[in-house]
Design a protein around this nucleic acid. Structure first.
Length: 273
DNA sequence: ATGGTAGTCGCACTA
């Protein structure tokens, strides 16, 4: 069976719930992982999504900032994880039942990390690095009990590759593309053999972006984007991702120029399990 | 080199 998974930093789910419903109707993902929902659990517009068939909803909300939620047509149960050293609402972990198969889906909103790329003088950057360290510990522990089918998605707030940013040189000192965080993220990926599905069928020198700043006048004229939103799978799910083919992965760039858009666009991966 | 925008909350904070 094919399982279609989309991740989207929505930058306020209440403000953009209509836009989310439009996306769900047009693209029919089985699962949508949202970040920056910017609301408390009881404020999450669950009813509208339930009406579209997304009966399984797991929310990690808090007042005003951050927040993540995963909504699914497939049965799903919550996994009791804890990744954020400051206890922000920044992740939702679930086990998804897909026919005779099941897999873990970890929906992350990794801290952005502030402005100054020095953890000694910038607590927010230190927090980002600490969050990544907790992720590394979790998956080390998880895999010590054998390979599970794992999917990691979300706004990682890191653009790892030279061609995941509009200018490698000009962003070397800009948080999201500094060597320190890129190395730590790459280590996290490589240590556990995760596959960055964006690059399965796309060369490393092809520019790919999922985020463009609100501050640009004409977003695509300057096209100063970064690929901050990711879908990773464990080795056990590499073949299902490959089986979906090149079209199995998509960055929905057009959603950046809708009326009142998020600064991130949805990113989709199909798994043919 | 700087300031540019957006969302939430109620002024400043986060991104």
């Amino acid at each position: 069976m094919k399982v279609k998974i989309t991740t989207w930093n929505i930058n306020s789910v209440r403000l953009r719930q209509g836009m989310v419903c439009d996306f769900l109707e047009q693209h029919q993902p089985d699962i949508l992982a949202l970040q920056e929902i910017k609301c408390q659990n009881e404020q999450f517009p669950a009813k509208g999504f339930e009406a579209l068939g997304y009966k399984y909803i797991e929310i990690a909300g808090q007042k005003a900032y951050h927040g993540a939620a995963t909504i699914s047509k497939l049965p799903m149960e919550r996994l009791p994880t804890s990744f954020c050293p400051l206890d922000h609402a920044r992740h939702v972990s679930t086990r998804v039942i897909a026919g005779s198969e099941d897999f873990e889906l970890h929906n992350f909103y990794i801290p952005a990390g502030g402005d100054v790329a020095d953890p000694k003088i910038n607590d927010k950057f230190q927090h980002k690095l600490d969050f990544l360290a907790v992720m590394n510990d979790y998956f080390t522990e998880r895999f010590s009990h054998g390979d599970a089918q794992q999917v990691l998605v979300g706004d990682f707030n890191i653009a790892p590759g030279e061609h995941d940013v509009w200018s490698h040189k000009q962003l070397l000192k800009v948080i999201s593309h500094t060597p320190m965080e890129v190395e730590i993220l790459e280590k996290l990926r490589a240590c556990h053999d995760f596959v960055d599905t964006a690059r399965l069928f796309r060369d490393d020198d092809e520019k790919l972006y999922s985020w463009w700043s609100y501050r640009a006048k004409d977003v695509f004229a300057s096209n100063r984007g970064r690929r901050l939103d990711h879908i990773w799978v464990s080795q056990a799910l590499k073949a299902p991702a490959e089986k979906a083919g090149r079209e199995g992965f998509e960055i929905h760039t057009d959603w950046r120029v809708k009326e009142k858009p998020s600064d991130h666009v949805p990113v989709t991966q199909i798994l043919d399990i």
